[in-house]
Design a protein around this nucleic acid. Structure first.
Lengths: 271, 271
DNA sequence: CGATGGTTTGAATGCTGTCAAAATGTGTGG
DNA sequence: CCACACATTTTGACAGCATTCAAACCATCG
C-alpha cells in the first residue's frame, strides 16, 4: 500500500470536498478558507453515534459532507422528537453558545467536517463574509423550521407523508442536476430510517407504512423498496399533500449556496 | 392642544423607546443607531391588520415595540397556522429576500418600528455589530422554532397548554423584574386571542377551554379571566407540561438583549 | 436454517376535532 | 341603567383519525 489509511479523522482536504461549492465555506475568501481549514477536521461517524449531546458542552460546529444527521430532543419520560435533519452541505451546531440545545446524532453512517467552536467564532469575526453567509443560512433554516410548524400543526399524517416524499424527490432532482445527470424518473429517497422519519413527521412507523401503501394502491407512487419511492403522479401527490408548490420550496431552503456568477458555473454534460 | 397628534406613523424617537435596551438596535453603536433611525418609522397597527402579506414584496423589516404580531401561513383550502408570535423587542421580517415567506398580522393593536428593507440590508453591511446581533437573534429564534417542533410533534394538547402557560408566566415575570416590580403572584397572560392561541398550539379553542378548566379544577391554576391565569402550583404545572425547565427556556429565547455588563444593570427596587 | 431487526397488517382504544347549543361577556343605543 | 345584538367562551355529544398493542411477514446475516 502506497498510501496510509487516513483513519477516522483527518485534516480537511477542501479541494476534493464534495460539498465545497455549496457549504458555508464556499462563501469564504481564499484567506478565509485557509484560516477555516486550519481548525477543521473531517470525521467519519457511524449510525446512531452521538456527535453533540444535549446540554453538553458544544465543542465544535460543523458541516455534513455525506450522509445525514438528526437533531433530537428527548423528554423526561423518554419520548423522542427529531426536530431537524441535516443533509450534505448543511451547517450544524451552535456558535456563540457554550452548551448544545439539542442532541446531534448520525442518522446514517456519515462524513462530517467539524471546526472547533471557539476558533470558528473568532474566525467569523475575522471574516465577516462567512458570518454573513451563516446569517443567510440561519434565516433559511428558520423559515424551514416555521414551515415545519405548518406540517406538524395543520397537516394530517397522510399530508405529511406526501409532503416529505415531494421534498425528498425535489432534493434528489436538484442533487442529480448538480452533477449533470438527467433523472429519468422522479424518485424520492427517504435516506433515513423509518423510525427517524416517523419521529420527524410527528407520527409512527405504522401510520407511515399505511399511508405509503395507500399512495401506492392509488397509483400515485410506486414502492421500490422501503426507502425508495417513484413518484408516478406528481400532480396528485401535490394535491394530496395539501401544500402549495411555493411552500414546498421553503422546506428545502436549508441549503444555501453562495450566489454563483456565470464564470463559476462548471460546464456540465447532460448526456 | 399644544402638541399635534403624531398620527399613525412617525419617525423613530429612540431615546423614549420602550424596547430600546433589548431590541436589535441596542447593539448598535451611536453612529449605527443614528443611521438606523433615519430609515425607521414608528407605526400603530390595529388588530388583524396585515403588515406583510405572504408572497408579497417585503418592503420593510421591523421590531415590535408594543402589542404582538402573529406569523401566519394559509393553506389552499383555507386552513391557517400561526407559525410564530412576535412580542415587544423582537425583530420580524426577512432581510436579503425580495418577498415575504409568511404573512405578518397584528394579533392585537400594536406599535411597531419599521425600517425600509433595502436600507436595512445596506446598514447591516455598514454596521457589522448589528448584523452580528441579528445572527444571534436568528439563531435563538431557530432554537425556539425547533423546540416548537417538539411541542407540536410530541406533546398532547394538555401538555401544550401547560407549556404555553409556563412560558407566558416566565415572560411576565421577566418583564416585571425589568421594570423593577415584584410579582407577588405568578400570572400567565395569554396576550393573544383564543383563536390565535389555538392555531399557535395546533389545536382548537374548544380543546384549550377544556384543558384550562381541567387545570383549574385540579387546583393547578386559577382562571382570572379568559386571558389571565394565576399559576397556583408551578411544580405540578411543570409536571403536566412534560418538558424540562431547561427546555422551557428555549421557548422564550427569541428575545436577545445584548450582554449587559455590571455597570449597565440598573438599580432595581424590590418593594 | 434459525435468529434478529425492521416492516406490514389487523383490531381496539382513546384523544381530539367537529358540530351544536347554552352561557357569558361586551358594546351600543334607548 | 337597562335592553338588545353580537362575539366569544364554555359545555355537551358524537365521530373519526391516529396511536397502541399484537401478530404476521420479510429480509439480512451469522
Amino acid at each position: 500500500m502506497a498510501v496510509a489509511d487516513p483513519g477516522p479523522s483527518d485534516s480537511a482536504q477542501c479541494e476534493h470536498c464534495a460539498v465545497r461549492s455549496r457549504a458555508l465555506c464556499a462563501a469564504a475568501t481564499v484567506e478565509g478558507l485557509r484560516d477555516l481549514r486550519r481548525w477543521s477536521r473531517v470525521r467519519q461517524v457511524t449510525v446512531d453515534e452521538v456527535i453533540l449531546a444535549d446540554h453538553a458542552e458544544a465543542e465544535f460546529v460543523g458541516t455534513v459532507v455525506a450522509g445525514a444527521l438528526r437533531q433530537v430532543k428527548t423528554m423526561p419520560d423518554g419520548r423522542e422528537q427529531v426536530v431537524g435533519l441535516i443533509f450534505p452541505g448543511e451547517f450544524f451546531g451552535r456558535p456563540f453558545r457554550e452548551t448544545s440545545d439539542f442532541s446531534y446524532e448520525a442518522a446514517v453512517d456519515s462524513e462530517i467536517c467539524v471546526t472547533e467552536r471557539r476558533a470558528f467564532e473568532a474566525l467569523l469575526r475575522r471574516h465577516p463574509e462567512v458570518e454573513h453567509q451563516l446569517l443567510l443560512h440561519t434565516m433559511n433554516e428558520l423559515a424551514a423550521a416555521r414551515e415545519r410548524s405548518l406540517l406538524l400543526g395543520s397537516l394530517d399524517t397522510l399530508e405529511r407523508v406526501a409532503t416529505y416524499l415531494l421534498v425528498m424527490a425535489a432534493r434528489r432532482e436538484q442533487m442529480l442536476s448538480r452533477i449533470g445527470q438527467d433523472p429519468h424518473f422522479e424518485v424520492a429517497a427517504s435516506l433515513i430510517s423509518r423510525k427517524d422519519l416517523a419521529s420527524y413527521l410527528g407520527t409512527t412507523i405504522e401510520t407511515i407504512s399505511r399511508h405509503v401503501h395507500h399512495l401506492s394502491r392509488s397509483g400515485i407512487i410506486r414502492i421500490i423498496d422501503s426507502g425508495h419511492f417513484e413518484v408516478l403522479d406528481h400532480g396528485r401527490l401535490l394535491a394530496v399533500s395539501g401544500v402549495t408548490r411555493d411552500d414546498l420550496k421553503l422546506f428545502e431552503a436549508a441549503e444555501v449556496g453562495p450566489p454563483l456568477d456565470a464564470g463559476q458555473i462548471r460546464q456540465q454534460r447532460t448526456d
